[in-house]
């Protein structure tokens, strides 16, 4: 097993485990922290795939901004006690089974996918570098890029409309 493979398995197991912990943790704060760990392991995967830009953006955007907001809100609401009474156990079991079935179905379906034999390039390849992505983003994808500013404007207006106390 090469070092890449070791890293891959390590990060995958970490990601899956922490993702599971996100779902199963009773305490929302713990959930947030596990989710951050998940994001980190996904960022690790990006580095493994030499998608440096996305790795860092993932950390900055998800771990650094989004999850802080989550944590912030949870702390503000003082949700540290687990406020979910175990009333609907059956719903939980049903949800779990549904998700599991979905997983099974998808895995079973995609196991024989046409690209099964293809290989992902790890450790090398230039496309994940910021120079390449930047050029793409500001030439081919400049229109969507500008359009996404509308999204942000509306989110901004929305945050004002919704968030401001009156």
């Amino acid at each position: 097993m090469s070092i890449t493979q070791i890293l891959f398995w390590f990060l995958s197991v970490l990601a899956l485990f922490s993702a599971l912990m996100v779902v199963t943790s009773k305490n929302p704060v713990h959930s947030v922290l596990w989710l951050i760990l998940t994001f980190f392991s996904i960022s690790g995967h990006y580095i493994l795939l030499n998608a440096q830009f996305l790795a860092v953006v993932n950390v900055i955007v998800y771990a650094g901004a989004i999850m802080v907001l989550f944590l912030f809100v949870i702390m503000l609401m003082n949700l540290n006690k687990s406020v979910e009474p175990q009333k609907n156990r059956w719903i939980k079991i049903a949800g779990g089974i549904a998700g599991g079935c979905l997983l099974l179905v998808l895995v079973a379906a995609l196991r024989n996918s046409e690209i099964r034999q293809q290989v992902v390039q790890v450790k090398e390849g230039e496309i994940g570098l910021i120079r390449n992505l930047g050029r793409e983003l500001f030439t081919t994808y400049v229109v969507p890029f500008e359009i996404s500013s509308i999204l942000f404007l509306s989110a901004m207006v929305g945050a004002v409309v919704i968030g401001k106390k009156d």
């Binding site: 779902v23 929302p28 979910e84 949800g95 599991g100």
Partner: peptide, 15 residues
């Protein structure tokens, strides 16, 4: 799928 299971089973909106 873990995400989906979470959405289906948890009741806390934030989670």
């Amino acid at each position: 799928c873990i995400g989906i299971v979470g959405v289906l089973t948890r009741r806390n909106a934030i989670i």
